[in-house]
Design a protein around this nucleic acid. Sequence first.
DNA 1: CCTGGGCATTGATATAGATCAAGAAATGAA
DNA 2: TTCATTTCTTGATCTATATCAATGCCCAGG
Lengths: 190, 190
Amino acid sequence: MFEKLRAYIEKHIKLTEEQFDLLKTCFVPMKLKKGEFLQRAGEVTRYGAFVVSGCLRKYVIDAKGKEHILYFAPEDWWVGDIESGLHQLPSLYFVDAIEHSDVLQIDLPSHQKIIEAMPAYASQYQLGLQKHMASKDKRIVAALSTSAEERYLEFLKTYPSIAQRVPQHMLASYLGISPETLSRIRKQKR
Amino acid sequence: MFEKLRAYIEKHIKLTEEQFDLLKTCFVPMKLKKGEFLQRAGEVTRYGAFVVSGCLRKYVIDAKGKEHILYFAPEDWWVGDIESGLHQLPSLYFVDAIEHSDVLQIDLPSHQKIIEAMPAYASQYQLGLQKHMASKDKRIVAALSTSAEERYLEFLKTYPSIAQRVPQHMLASYLGISPETLSRIRKQKR
DNA sequence: CCTGGGCATTGATATAGATCAAGAAATGAA
DNA sequence: TTCATTTCTTGATCTATATCAATGCCCAGG
């Protein structure tokens, strides 16, 4: 498990053995069966996680009882709700496993400890946040301005592997369209 | 101009005189008339800016020639396109003044210098990014799941002062609805 | 090897909101 | 002030997508 994390981090920065040891003390390995929750709305988020294998999803349930998926988190992604953890506020989001998954859990104080101990990690983290912001901006524009079909095709292009492994109704939820509409779009593309 | 920036930063962290002097060397004051651009799509972003007074907007023009406003930036907000500046890629976004505005420009290297010189600023910046992420997530969910009317009312609640000062068709563009629809929604609410 | 409950498909209908078009009102430049 | 331009409003259609409903499918657990 830890080797996967190491490999991921070393894509960007070199780790000394001591640094790797620090990481090992901060993350806690955990297995999740399909359908198990890492976090439920209403709870204050205590942990974020790095996904070693499998796939999780983060989603809200809105006032009308509908699910809306914020993102899928397959291998090498991070999930959590920093906002909630930071301000000790109940989270709006659920996080659960849509496949049997292995994750490395970390709490916010430990993460902060890593940031303080490893400046290179800190700036890598900052870069990651900035990158994420940019992709969220794109998604906002797409949601506001493009058709269901355009969003679907764009998703296929951007995340081909995710498109293949998640159930269709979840993809629909991510795209903000009904499962029926997605089914019709796909039919038409055949 | 600089006093406004100082007051803004000192909401979160204390500044010594030396630190304030450093800031003064990093930011360049600039006046923008209504309609003037801080940045155009296609250009590599060189500067971000802190808005001292007035109001700017960041927006895209999509394939069909339509504008979509990402956000408004009145006093005490920041604008820019870090993604573009960071990777030296042409930006997708325009930034222009919708009122006569005063801004303090800063380039990415200077900003990085501040982050390295002032750890408290760095962590404040990190907090800011995280907070922004959370609000963008909310906007994504809203865009995908709520009606035009709901989004309008939510905007009024969240940014009452912005709602009053920006032209209605820009608000419509931000909300992802046509100006006609927004006009009808407002009529109904009277 | 059954079998039942989630998934996907398909059809029929309803509707929010877009688009087109035209007039009214506001804004600002001269 | 006056004229011109931009913005806002209102009405009449049109369309993408939701919703409702029925059917078939498939694979997971007994």
